Simulated assay, not measured.
Amino acid sequence: MVVSLYDRLGGYDAIGEFAGRLISGAQSDSLLGRFWGHRADDRNARDLQMLIDYLVRETGGQMYYTGRDMALTHAGMGITDIDWARFIEIVIQVAGELGVGELEGAEVLAFLDGLKGDIVTAG
């Protein structure tokens, strides 16, 4: 029996915790915080829920994601390779804090690497 990444990560609650800590870390980061600087709390809460829904679906959980694709979602934001590298550092930090296993962490990083071309749009 193949166990989904969703289940190996701990299911909905664990992915929600990961996403919440990830976004909190990015929002408070001196480099990445600018992407949330002028947004209302309700918008940020909605975007967090969309991220959770997306991650649950993409890892094999039963979630219907109603958001836009990653290219459209991040269009015009001017996200650079430097921003991306800092984001990945935060991902790794949060995964470590939550005790994500090496295999699962590698799968998450490979998944994110596949999204980079849709998200990083500036030099």
Rank of each mutant, 00 (worst) to 15 (best):
I119E: 07
S24H: 13
W84T: 00
V120N: 09
D42P: 00
G16D: 12
D41S: 13
A75H: 12
D113Y: 06
G16R: 11
D81K: 12
E58Y: 06
G20V: 06
S28M: 03
A14S: 14
A106S: 13
A106Q: 13
A71K: 13
L22V: 05
G105F: 02
S24N: 14
E89W: 03
G67K: 00
A95Y: 02
V94N: 05
M50T: 15
Y54K: 11
Y6C: 10
F111T: 07
M70S: 14
G10V: 02
V3K: 13
I79D: 13
Y12H: 14
T121E: 13
G105W: 01
G25I: 02
A122I: 00
T66W: 07
G96F: 01
A110F: 10
G99N: 12
M70C: 10
G16E: 13
G117C: 06
Y64I: 10
V3S: 14
D47W: 03
H74C: 01
H74T: 00
L112Y: 10
A122H: 09
V94I: 09
H38F: 03
R68Y: 13
G16Y: 06
I90K: 05
E17V: 02
D7Q: 15
V56M: 02
Q62W: 05
R43L: 14
A122E: 14
M77C: 03
Y65H: 04
D29K: 02
A26W: 01
E102P: 00
Q62K: 10
G114H: 01
M77A: 09
R43M: 14
E89V: 04
E58M: 08
D47E: 15
G20Q: 07
R57I: 03
I52D: 03
D7W: 06
D53H: 04
D41M: 07
R34H: 08
E97D: 11
V120Q: 08
R57D: 08
I92Y: 03
K116I: 02
G114F: 00
Y64K: 12
A26R: 01
G101L: 04
A110M: 12
Y54C: 12
T121N: 14
Y64M: 08
V2D: 15
I88D: 08
I15E: 13
A19G: 12
V2C: 09
I119R: 07
F35R: 05
L5V: 12
E107Q: 11
Q27V: 03
F35L: 04
E89H: 09
E102M: 06
I82A: 15
I119N: 11
N44K: 15
R21V: 01
T59I: 02
L55T: 08
M77G: 08
A75L: 08
I88L: 08
L98R: 06
D29S: 04
G37M: 07
V91G: 10
A26H: 05
G16V: 04
F18P: 02
F87P: 00
R34Q: 12
I52M: 07
R46T: 14
I90V: 08
L103F: 10
S30M: 05
L55E: 11
V3F: 06
M70F: 05
T80S: 15
W36H: 05
D13I: 04
L31G: 09
I79T: 12
I88V: 14
K116L: 01
D13K: 13
G114M: 00
L72F: 14
A45V: 06
D69P: 05
R8L: 04
L32N: 02
Y12M: 05
Y54E: 10
L5F: 04
G96M: 00
G96W: 01
L72Q: 15
V3P: 02
